[in-house]
Measured scan of single mutants.
Amino acid sequence: VTLFVALYDYEARTEDDLSAHKGEKFQILNSSEGDWWEARSLTTGETGYIPSNYVAPV
C-alpha cells in the first residue's frame, strides 16, 4: 500500500477530482497518469484524482 499525506488543501474542480484537506492520508491507486494521481481517501473512502504535487509520502 502506497500512502501519501496532503500537504495543502485542494478543492475538487471536476467530478473526477477528489478534494483533500491538509494532513489527510491517501492510498495511491494509480500514479501513471502524470501530474494527477488516482487516490482513495483513508478518511472518507472516496476515490478520485488529486494533484501529485499536493501530497508527499508518509
Rank of each mutant, 00 (worst) to 15 (best):
residue 1 V to T: 12
residue 1 V to N: 12
residue 1 V to P: 12
residue 1 V to S: 13
residue 1 V to A: 12
residue 1 V to Q: 12
residue 1 V to F: 14
residue 1 V to H: 13
residue 2 T to Q: 13
residue 2 T to E: 11
residue 2 T to S: 11
residue 2 T to H: 11
residue 3 L to D: 05
residue 3 L to C: 12
residue 3 L to I: 15
residue 3 L to A: 05
residue 3 L to P: 04
residue 3 L to K: 04
residue 3 L to R: 02
residue 4 F to W: 15
residue 4 F to V: 13
residue 4 F to R: 00
residue 4 F to P: 00
residue 4 F to I: 05
residue 5 V to A: 05
residue 5 V to M: 08
residue 5 V to F: 10
residue 5 V to I: 12
residue 5 V to G: 01
residue 5 V to W: 06
residue 5 V to D: 00
residue 5 V to N: 01
residue 5 V to L: 06
residue 6 A to S: 05
residue 6 A to W: 02
residue 6 A to P: 00
residue 6 A to E: 02
residue 6 A to C: 09
residue 6 A to F: 08
residue 6 A to V: 06
residue 6 A to G: 02
residue 7 L to P: 00
residue 7 L to E: 03
residue 7 L to K: 04
residue 7 L to N: 02
residue 7 L to R: 01
residue 7 L to V: 08
residue 7 L to C: 10
residue 7 L to I: 11
residue 8 Y to L: 08
residue 8 Y to V: 07
residue 8 Y to S: 07
residue 9 D to Q: 05
residue 9 D to E: 06
residue 9 D to P: 06
residue 9 D to K: 05
residue 10 Y to A: 02
residue 10 Y to D: 01
residue 10 Y to C: 07
residue 10 Y to G: 00
residue 10 Y to K: 00
residue 10 Y to M: 04
residue 10 Y to H: 04
residue 10 Y to E: 01
residue 10 Y to T: 02
residue 11 E to N: 09
residue 11 E to C: 13
residue 11 E to W: 09
residue 11 E to M: 10
residue 12 A to S: 10
residue 12 A to Q: 06
residue 12 A to R: 08
residue 12 A to D: 02
residue 12 A to C: 06
residue 12 A to K: 09
residue 12 A to E: 03
residue 12 A to L: 03
residue 13 R to F: 07
residue 13 R to M: 11
residue 13 R to Y: 07
residue 13 R to H: 10
residue 13 R to E: 10
residue 14 T to C: 15
residue 14 T to L: 08
residue 14 T to D: 12
residue 14 T to A: 11
residue 14 T to R: 14
residue 14 T to Y: 14
residue 14 T to N: 14
residue 15 E to P: 14
residue 15 E to T: 12
residue 15 E to N: 12
residue 15 E to R: 10
residue 16 D to P: 03
residue 16 D to N: 15
residue 16 D to C: 15
residue 16 D to Q: 14
residue 16 D to Y: 15
residue 16 D to V: 12
residue 16 D to H: 15
residue 16 D to T: 15
residue 16 D to G: 15
residue 16 D to S: 14
residue 17 D to Y: 13
residue 17 D to M: 13
residue 17 D to Q: 15
residue 17 D to H: 15
residue 17 D to N: 09
residue 17 D to C: 15
residue 17 D to W: 08
residue 17 D to F: 14
residue 18 L to V: 07
residue 18 L to E: 00
residue 18 L to C: 06
residue 18 L to R: 00
residue 19 S to N: 10
residue 19 S to P: 11
residue 19 S to E: 06
residue 19 S to C: 06
residue 19 S to Y: 05
residue 19 S to D: 08
residue 20 A to S: 05
residue 20 A to C: 14
residue 20 A to W: 06
residue 20 A to V: 15
residue 20 A to F: 15
residue 20 A to I: 15
residue 20 A to D: 00
residue 20 A to M: 15
residue 20 A to P: 01
residue 21 H to S: 12
residue 21 H to D: 04
residue 21 H to I: 12
residue 21 H to A: 10
residue 21 H to V: 14
residue 21 H to L: 10
residue 22 K to M: 09
residue 22 K to F: 05
residue 22 K to I: 10
residue 22 K to C: 08
residue 22 K to A: 11
residue 22 K to T: 09
residue 22 K to S: 05
residue 23 G to L: 02
residue 23 G to P: 00
residue 23 G to F: 04
residue 23 G to S: 02
residue 23 G to K: 01
residue 24 E to G: 01
residue 24 E to C: 06
residue 24 E to I: 02
residue 24 E to D: 10
residue 24 E to W: 04
residue 25 K to A: 07
residue 25 K to R: 12
residue 25 K to N: 07
residue 25 K to S: 06
residue 25 K to D: 01
residue 26 F to M: 04
residue 26 F to V: 04
residue 26 F to Y: 04
residue 26 F to P: 01
residue 26 F to W: 04
residue 26 F to T: 00
residue 26 F to E: 01
residue 26 F to I: 05
residue 27 Q to P: 02
residue 27 Q to I: 15
residue 27 Q to T: 09
residue 27 Q to D: 06
residue 28 I to N: 00
residue 28 I to K: 03
residue 28 I to Y: 02
residue 28 I to P: 01
residue 28 I to G: 03
residue 28 I to R: 00
residue 28 I to T: 01
residue 28 I to Q: 01
residue 29 L to E: 05
residue 29 L to N: 04
residue 29 L to D: 04
residue 29 L to Q: 04
residue 29 L to I: 11
residue 29 L to T: 06
residue 29 L to R: 02
residue 30 N to K: 07
residue 30 N to T: 08
residue 30 N to Y: 07
residue 30 N to A: 08
residue 30 N to F: 07
residue 31 S to R: 13
residue 31 S to C: 15
residue 31 S to H: 10
residue 31 S to V: 11
residue 31 S to N: 12
residue 31 S to D: 13
residue 31 S to M: 15
residue 31 S to Y: 12
residue 31 S to K: 13
residue 31 S to G: 09
residue 31 S to L: 10
residue 32 S to C: 13
residue 32 S to K: 10
residue 32 S to P: 10
residue 32 S to H: 11
residue 33 E to C: 15
residue 33 E to F: 12
residue 33 E to W: 12
residue 33 E to R: 14
residue 33 E to S: 14
residue 33 E to M: 14
residue 33 E to P: 10
residue 34 G to L: 11
residue 34 G to A: 14
residue 34 G to F: 08
residue 35 D to L: 11
residue 35 D to F: 12
residue 35 D to A: 09
residue 35 D to E: 11
residue 35 D to N: 08
residue 35 D to K: 07
residue 35 D to Q: 09
residue 35 D to W: 08
residue 35 D to H: 11
residue 35 D to I: 09
residue 36 W to E: 04
residue 36 W to G: 03
residue 36 W to T: 07
residue 36 W to D: 04
residue 37 W to V: 08
residue 37 W to N: 01
residue 37 W to T: 03
residue 37 W to S: 02
residue 37 W to G: 00
residue 37 W to I: 07
residue 37 W to F: 09
residue 38 E to Y: 15
residue 38 E to R: 09
residue 38 E to Q: 11
residue 38 E to P: 04
residue 38 E to L: 15
residue 38 E to S: 06
residue 38 E to T: 09
residue 38 E to I: 15
residue 39 A to E: 03
residue 39 A to G: 05
residue 39 A to T: 02
residue 39 A to L: 10
residue 39 A to Y: 08
residue 40 R to W: 07
residue 40 R to A: 06
residue 40 R to Y: 10
residue 40 R to Q: 12
residue 40 R to T: 14
residue 40 R to I: 13
residue 40 R to G: 05
residue 40 R to P: 04
residue 40 R to D: 04
residue 40 R to S: 06
residue 40 R to F: 10
residue 41 S to I: 03
residue 41 S to D: 04
residue 41 S to Y: 04
residue 41 S to C: 09
residue 41 S to L: 03
residue 41 S to G: 02
residue 41 S to P: 04
residue 41 S to H: 04
residue 41 S to E: 04
residue 42 L to V: 10
residue 42 L to N: 05
residue 42 L to A: 05
residue 42 L to T: 08
residue 43 T to F: 09
residue 43 T to K: 09
residue 43 T to V: 11
residue 43 T to E: 15
residue 44 T to L: 01
residue 44 T to V: 01
residue 44 T to D: 03
residue 44 T to F: 02
residue 44 T to Y: 03
residue 44 T to W: 02
residue 45 G to S: 05
residue 45 G to M: 06
residue 45 G to I: 04
residue 45 G to N: 07
residue 45 G to T: 02
residue 45 G to H: 05
residue 45 G to V: 02
residue 45 G to E: 04
residue 45 G to P: 00
residue 46 E to K: 15
residue 46 E to Y: 09
residue 46 E to I: 10
residue 46 E to F: 10
residue 47 T to A: 06
residue 47 T to M: 08
residue 47 T to G: 02
residue 47 T to C: 09
residue 47 T to S: 09
residue 48 G to F: 05
residue 48 G to A: 03
residue 48 G to S: 01
residue 48 G to N: 01
residue 48 G to V: 04
residue 49 Y to S: 05
residue 49 Y to C: 11
residue 49 Y to L: 14
residue 49 Y to V: 06
residue 49 Y to G: 03
residue 49 Y to D: 01
residue 49 Y to M: 14
residue 49 Y to N: 07
residue 50 I to W: 01
residue 50 I to N: 02
residue 50 I to H: 01
residue 51 P to L: 07
residue 51 P to T: 03
residue 51 P to V: 03
residue 51 P to R: 06
residue 51 P to F: 07
residue 51 P to Y: 08
residue 51 P to W: 09
residue 52 S to T: 07
residue 52 S to Q: 07
residue 52 S to V: 07
residue 52 S to N: 05
residue 52 S to C: 13
residue 52 S to Y: 08
residue 52 S to R: 11
residue 52 S to M: 09
residue 53 N to T: 11
residue 53 N to I: 11
residue 53 N to W: 15
residue 53 N to R: 13
residue 53 N to V: 10
residue 53 N to G: 11
residue 54 Y to K: 08
residue 54 Y to D: 02
residue 54 Y to Q: 07
residue 54 Y to H: 09
residue 54 Y to T: 11
residue 54 Y to A: 14
residue 55 V to A: 03
residue 55 V to N: 01
residue 55 V to M: 13
residue 55 V to R: 00
residue 55 V to H: 02
residue 55 V to Q: 00
residue 55 V to S: 00
residue 55 V to F: 14
residue 56 A to M: 09
residue 56 A to E: 09
residue 56 A to Q: 09
residue 56 A to T: 11
residue 56 A to G: 08
residue 57 P to G: 04
residue 57 P to R: 05
residue 57 P to Y: 05
residue 57 P to K: 07
residue 57 P to S: 06
residue 58 V to Q: 06
residue 58 V to A: 09
residue 58 V to L: 13
residue 58 V to G: 03
residue 58 V to W: 14
